[in-house]
Computed example of a mutant assay.
Amino acid sequence: MTQIITTLAEISDRYDALFCDLWGCVHDGLTPFAEAIAAMQTFRLKGGTVMLVTNAPRPHEPVRRQLESIGVPEDAYDGIATSGDSARAAMFRGAVGENVYFIGQPQDQVFFSPLELIENPVTITQVPVEEADGIICCGPFDSLADLEVMRPQFLLAKNKGLKLLCANPDIVVDRGDTREWCAGALAQLYTELGGESLYFGKPHPPIYDLARRRLDALGKSIPDHRILCVGDGVLTDIDGALGEELDSLFITGGLAARETKTENQPDPTALEAYLANEMMQPTYSIGKLR
Rank of each mutant, 00 (worst) to 15 (best):
I5N: 11
L8W: 03
I11K: 12
Y15H: 09
A17S: 07
L18P: 01
F19V: 04
L22H: 02
W23A: 05
G24W: 00
C25W: 00
H27R: 04
T31G: 00
T31A: 00
P32E: 08
P32F: 07
F33E: 03
A34H: 07
E35M: 10
A38W: 00
A39P: 06
R44P: 07
L45H: 12
K46L: 10
K46F: 03
M51L: 15
M51T: 04
V53Q: 07
A56F: 02
P57L: 04
P57S: 06
P57Q: 05
P59A: 15
R65F: 11
R65P: 03
I70S: 07
G71V: 14
V72A: 04
V72S: 08
P73V: 14
Y77A: 09
D78M: 02
G79H: 03
G79K: 08
T82S: 12
R88M: 06
F102S: 06
G104A: 03
G104D: 01
Q105H: 02
P106M: 13
V110K: 08
V110N: 00
F111A: 13
F112C: 06
F112G: 05
F112D: 04
L115V: 09
L115I: 09
I118E: 01
P121T: 10
T123Q: 12
T123N: 04
Q126I: 13
V127R: 07
V127G: 03
P128D: 12
P128G: 08
G134T: 12
I135D: 03
I136M: 12
C137E: 08
D142G: 00
D142N: 12
D142M: 08
S143R: 15
S143N: 12
D146A: 13
V149C: 09
R151M: 01
R151K: 07
Q153L: 08
K160V: 04
G161D: 06
L162Y: 01
L164I: 07
L164Q: 05
L164F: 11
L165S: 07
V172D: 10
V173S: 11
R179Y: 02
E180V: 13
A183T: 04
A185V: 07
L186I: 15
Q188P: 00
L189R: 12
Y190G: 02
L193P: 01
L198R: 11
K202Y: 06
P205Q: 04
I207L: 09
D209C: 06
D216C: 06
A217H: 09
G219N: 05
K220W: 00
P223F: 10
D224Q: 14
D224V: 11
V230A: 05
G231S: 02
V234E: 05
L235C: 03
D237N: 09
G240T: 10
G240K: 06
L242P: 00
G243C: 02
G243F: 01
G243W: 02
E244N: 06
S248P: 01
T252V: 12
T252E: 03
T252C: 15
G254S: 06
L255T: 11
A257F: 10
T262G: 12
P268T: 15
P268N: 15
T269N: 14
T269I: 15
A270C: 15
A276L: 14
E278Y: 11
M279I: 14
M280R: 15
P282V: 13
T283C: 10
T283E: 07
Y284L: 09
L289W: 05
